[in-house]
Computed example of a mutant assay.
Amino acid sequence: MPAVSLLAVLTVLLSYLLGAIPAAAWVARARGVDIRKVGSGNSGATNVQRALGNGPGLAVAVFDILKGALAVGLAGLLDLGQPVMAACGVAAVLGHNFSPFLGFRGGKGVATSFGTMTALLPVAGLGAALLFLLSVWLTRFVSLGSILGAVTAAFVCFVAGPLWLGLVITGLSALLIWQHRDNVRRLQAGTERRFGEKTAGAKN
């Protein structure tokens, strides 16, 4: 048991470091852009897409999704049990949002949360993806789609998964919504940028 517990702790810490890899910042830096100084200043896929285009934005989104999924998958591969798998996914999201490589700043955790949710309960990830895509298609607001997707995932977890997992995903969803508090204010004020709009300092 002590060995298993130590392995679990080490795996959670490794998951945090995996999540902390600042793909957005590094991709942007390779293109001569400090992503923290353009647009929203957020180190995430949406800001990269607005600043650098669809290709870099998609690459960052895929990498960030994989961070959450791989963290959960690693704990599963080590047969540490679902609670530890969930803890590793949460750690990856926290690493992404509060990366030590970026002065404990980072992104808003949308893609990494999606990877985590999908790895833990695929039907929750599917529900989140459908609501996200539908909302962005109808409104072109990525922030609104992200929030609605997160709420959907939490609801699906309570319906299709165990109670404890529903509580975990609800916590992740609450963190995601909190990270979007400025976006919510801009949505209310009618000043939120839509998907596809270039940001100041963007490179073509």
Rank of each mutant, 00 (worst) to 15 (best):
L172M: 13
V123M: 13
L138W: 13
G107M: 01
P162E: 10
A28Q: 04
G41K: 11
P56E: 08
P22E: 07
V123Q: 13
L148R: 00
N183I: 02
G125N: 00
I35N: 08
T11A: 10
V151D: 01
V184Y: 15
I65W: 00
A124L: 05
G19S: 03
A87T: 07
L163H: 14
F104I: 05
A20V: 07
V84I: 15
D79A: 15
S99P: 04
V38H: 09
A3W: 13
L131R: 01
C88Q: 04
T170Q: 12
I65V: 11
F195V: 06
S146M: 03
A92E: 06
K67W: 01
A75L: 10
A202P: 06
G57R: 02
W178P: 05
V62E: 01
G166D: 08
F195E: 06
R194A: 13
A75S: 09
T118C: 04
G127I: 00
D34P: 08
G107K: 00
L121N: 02
G81W: 08
A71K: 02
A28G: 04
L6Y: 14
P22K: 07
R36L: 11
T46Q: 03
G145A: 04
T11P: 05
A71N: 03
S99V: 04
N54F: 13
A160Y: 10
D64F: 00
L120M: 03
L131G: 00
G109K: 03
V136T: 10
K198S: 13
H96V: 01
L163A: 13
L94R: 09
I35T: 09
G145E: 01
A20G: 06
G145N: 01
L18E: 05
R194N: 09
R29W: 14
L6P: 12
A25E: 12
W137A: 12
L165N: 05
V159A: 14
G115Q: 07
N54H: 15
F101K: 09
I147T: 02
D34Q: 11
A111R: 00
R194K: 15
A30M: 14
S113E: 02
W26T: 10
F155K: 10
V62Y: 01
E197F: 08
L131Y: 00
A25S: 15
L80M: 10
G81K: 10
H180E: 08
L17P: 05
D182K: 11
P162M: 14
P162S: 14
G127D: 02
Q82M: 15
A124K: 02
A91F: 06
R36M: 14
A91T: 05
H180Q: 07
L70Y: 08
A124D: 03
V156R: 02
V9H: 13
G19R: 02
A23L: 11
L102K: 07
L165R: 06
A153E: 03
V123P: 04
L70N: 06
L94Q: 11
G190T: 09
S15N: 11
T170F: 12
F155N: 12
G196I: 07
P56K: 11
F114D: 00
